[in-house]
Design a protein around this nucleic acid. Structure first.
Length: 258
DNA sequence: ATGCCGTGGAAACCACGA
């Protein structure tokens, strides 16, 4: 079973790239972030024609998350994280697919830091961590995946010395990621490739992709049950080189059948 | 060191992203 996450940076503007990648990669489950489309503008028909059923939480202009499943209907469990009723940003959706709880998240960027956006990021992280603790305690097979907007360690940044004050790399944020992982989750990429330079995002400008000036900010966290089933993981970096592409590349894991 | 690029929405610029 292959599960992927992809920050598309505009699902409608990215539709040809998304469909091409789905056709080439044929993931069983896909988590999308940054739809940048209101609920009624999600390209449901095109995605259905590609063989995927979907649930999504849209929002005008910004944010937006979706879960796709090939030849199967994702069964929605919740949309939105608990803990802040006034939070109206579409950044979290959760569904069951094939017995696995799929949690698709788009963690706030948080810049500029310090400031209210950074405070929101840290609050959102705390809410995610609280919810993740409940999911972990349930003992169910769980995947927490998406755009975390955090580089966990120095090897996840092309030039860590330049990123120390950035909201994606500040100590509080790295600590928040560590606190979450330390509940017992497995960072799938780092389990399989503990020392390799692996990026999932490259800026559009300054030729970041061709210079390989990248960041690793899209992650898969696995519950212990799924950690045992993990057989492969990677980044479809070539997709970042396509025309009209996102600034993120798709990230994927492969789980052994039960 | 820096939104230099890209997207969406509204209005021929601005907010926002990482």
């Amino acid at each position: 079973m292959k599960i992927a996450t992809y920050n598309v940076n505009g699902v409608n503007g990215r539709l040809p790239v998304l469909l091409q990648w789905l056709q080439e990669s044929t993931p069983d489950v896909v988590c999308l972030q940054e739809l940048k489309a209101p609920q009624e503008k999600f390209p449901e028909k095109a995605i259905q024609d590609a063989g995927y059923h979907a649930i999504w939480h849209g929002q005008k202009s910004w944010n937006g998350v979706a879960i796709l499943a090939r030849n199967e209907q994702p069964v929605e469990v919740r949309r939105g994280l608990p803990g802040e009723a006034e939070d109206d940003q579409s950044r979290y959706i959760e569904a069951t697919v094939n017995g696995i709880l799929i949690c698709c998240l788009y963690l706030p960027n948080g810049n500029p830091a310090p400031g209210p956006k950074f405070d929101y990021k840290l609050r959102w992280f705390e809410r995610l961590t609280a919810h993740a603790a409940e999911l972990f305690a349930s003992g169910k097979p769980v995947v927490l995946t998406g755009d975390y907007n955090v580089m966990p360690t120095e090897i996840d940044v092309y030039k860590p010395e330049r990123w120390g004050d950035d909201a994606l790399f500040r100590p509080e944020v790295r600590q928040a990621f560590k606190t979450l992982v330390d509940q017992g989750w497995t960072d799938a990429i780092r389990k399989l490739y503990p020392d390799e330079k692996i990026y999932t995002f490259w800026d559009y400008f300054r030729n970041a992709y061709s210079r390989d000036a990248g960041l690793r900010i899209d992650h898969f966290l696995l519950s212990p049950h799924l950690d045992k089933r993990l057989i492969a993981a990677g980044v479809n970096r070539n997709v970042r080189g396509w025309e009209k592409t996102s600034d993120h590349a798709p990230v994927w894991i492969e789980l052994a059948d039960e």
